Computed example of a mutant assay.
Amino acid sequence: MSRLTAEANGVFVISVTPFHENGAIDFDSLDRVTDFYLEKGATGITVLGMMGEAPKLTQAEAREIVARVIKRAGGKPVVAGVSAPGLAAISELSSAVMDMGAAGVMIAPPSSLRTDDQIAGYYAQACQAAGDGVPVVLQDFPLSTGVQISNATLGRIIEDNDQIVMLKHEDWPGLAKISALRKAESEGRRRISILCGNGALFLPEEMGRGADGAMTGFGYPEMMAEVVALAGNGEMDRAQDLFDAYLPLVRYEQQPGLGLAVRKHVLARRGAIASAALRKPGAGLQPAAIAEVERLIERQTKKLKELK
Rank of each mutant, 00 (worst) to 15 (best):
S186C: 03
D140A: 10
F218K: 00
P55C: 12
G213R: 08
Q254G: 10
C196Q: 03
A272H: 02
D244N: 13
D160I: 01
Y37G: 01
R238M: 04
S29C: 08
R238W: 01
G232A: 03
M224W: 01
E53I: 03
N233D: 13
G282H: 05
A54H: 11
G271A: 11
K302F: 14
F27A: 07
A120Q: 09
A211M: 01
E170T: 05
G146S: 11
S186N: 06
I14M: 13
I178Y: 00
D99R: 10
L267K: 02
W172C: 13
T46Y: 07
L242S: 06
L296V: 03
A229I: 05
A229Y: 03
S94Y: 03
A60W: 07
G49E: 15
A239T: 09
G10Q: 12
V147W: 03
M106Y: 05
R182F: 05
G259P: 07
T301Y: 08
D160Q: 15
M236N: 07
L38A: 08
E64A: 15
G74E: 11
A184N: 07
L181A: 07
V16N: 06
V136I: 05
A129S: 12
R279K: 15
T58C: 11
L285F: 03
I65T: 11
V266F: 00
M51P: 00
R190P: 15
G52M: 14
G234H: 13
V165Y: 05
L57N: 08
A67V: 10
I194C: 09
V250K: 00
I164P: 01
I192T: 04
V165F: 07
V293S: 09
S15M: 15
D35Y: 07
I273A: 05
A89P: 00
V66E: 13
S2V: 09
L267I: 02
R269M: 13
P173N: 03
R238F: 00
A126E: 10
Q118N: 02
L167V: 09
L267Y: 04
T145K: 12
F12L: 09
Q59R: 14
Q118M: 12
G234M: 11
M100R: 14
R209E: 08
A73Q: 14
D117H: 12
S179V: 06
K56W: 06
V134I: 10
S179M: 02
R189F: 01
Q163W: 04
M50E: 06
S2L: 11
D26H: 03
M98C: 05
V66G: 11
V105Y: 06
T115Y: 09
S150Y: 06
A67E: 15
